[in-house]
Design a protein around this nucleic acid. Structure first.
Lengths: 230, 230
DNA sequence: TAGTGGTCTAGACCACAGC
DNA sequence: CTGTGGTCTAGACCACTAA
């Protein structure tokens, strides 16, 4: 194996929470070269490649550091708000506002094409001591029967779903709306404040699992998506 | 500009249907080095980067060739507003509001990391007889030299770019903002009306091609994304 | 101002695949 | 075989910026 590749792989492997967590300073190029018995060229090549991949950050004079995970969520993933906020170093909390059992879907969630009984939840995600997002959620109990017994008073339904009911198809709809009376009160903002509204339907093998509508104050959230061929 | 970048940009620019169509054999590294008065290192660096970006194919002993166009994925991911509106059965029109030549980028488009001369455009997309979106756009003339001669007074720069300068990397940023004075006037809405703001940066082999910021009145546009894991 | 990354030079050896 | 890219050496200068 070539020195450049060896250096890349070794650093990649050691970049784990236990050993080299985000923010750790990495050896300078001359040091890497000496440790691997090669010239500075290959060491630079390896580090440059890691930087382009976004795994390390490099600053002249400052040195090279294990990159902190990006704050933005990709549109292509299903973001877990709890992880997002924790990753930003803030305290996350979910506050349940209401919980109702309904015999059939009848709102926007009908796009799930299910006539099964559903669980309707309403809550607020908080970051630190400020509201971060207002969420209404419909859970299809036929697809997720365990959900009826879960205590959602401090667990966000999205976080629970991500780890219990994997999805196979999803649809996102992103719009900009002015906060209505309800959202404004929940988010502690003025009525009409521009908000990013993210609607999401997910299915599992063609069966609707959940519908979620999340409202984010425009200045507290943005979606970033990167694309490259394959 | 460093030899490596100069070689990359020159080849990128000449890789157009008229000059170096797909399949054309490119000079060998020693030749590129001699032509640019540099060592083989930078020439190799430039060609390797172009190969990683998928713009050229390299084979030992065989040589380097202009790759078959990666255009297909481009059209899928970047929406063409003209097509969107036409598909809805409305009449589409683009109205150019301003056109300026600038010697270097200095706004949000600096994320394109280019210090080349740019073309700054401003215009409105119309659906039927109502404004649909307000757009400001920066075109890097080093990446798209033909753009200076194109008449954009009724052609949206995005539509033109899609068919002339394929991109390899793109970043989208989606936010919700209240319409400012300029946008409100262009879109014939009230100041503060919630709008979806889509910012897009695109690159070709690491060279910034264009930056676009499109503002849509919240009730006239939404983004929908469908996906299934692989 | 000194340390670090960014880039370069001029040469070298090797692996690989067309010829 | 021979030409090509892949990778390396040992050294150098410069640009940037954090200390």
């Amino acid at each position: 194996m070539s020195p450049a590749r060896r250096i890349m792989e070794e650093i990649t492997v050691r970049m784990r929470p236990g050993e080299w967590p985000p923010g750790t300073r990495l050896p300078v190029e001359t040091e890497l070269a000496a440790q691997n018995g090669c010239a500075r060229g290959p060491a630079n090549k390896a580090m440059t490649a890691l930087a382009e991949a976004g795994l390390v950050e490099r600053r002249r004079k400052g040195g090279s550091f294990v990159a902190r995970p990006p704050v933005h969520s990709a549109v292509l993933d299903i973001p877990d708000i709890a992880q997002l906020i924790t990753a930003r170093g803030e305290i996350y909390a979910f506050v349940l506002l209401s919980r109702r059992l309904r015999l059939s879907a009848d709102g926007p969630e009908t796009a799930l094409k299910s006539s099964d009984p559903v669980l309707a939840l309403e809550g607020v995600h908080r970051a630190g001591d400020a509201p971060f997002a207002y969420e209404t959620r419909i859970l299809n109990l036929a697809a997720a029967p365990d959900a009826e017994k879960v205590d959602f008073s401090h667990t966000a339904p999205g976080s629970w779903l991500l780890t219990h009911i994997p999805w196979t198809e999803a649809r996102h709809r992103i719009t900009s709306v002015g906060a209505d009376r309800t959202a404004a009160r929940r988010l502690e903002i003025r009525i009409g404040t521009p908000c990013l509204q993210l609607e999401r339907w997910t299915w599992r093998a063609g069966v609707g699992v959940t519908y979620a509508r999340q409202t984010y104050p425009g200045d507290r959230y943005d979606l970033v998506a990167d694309f490259a061929p394959h």
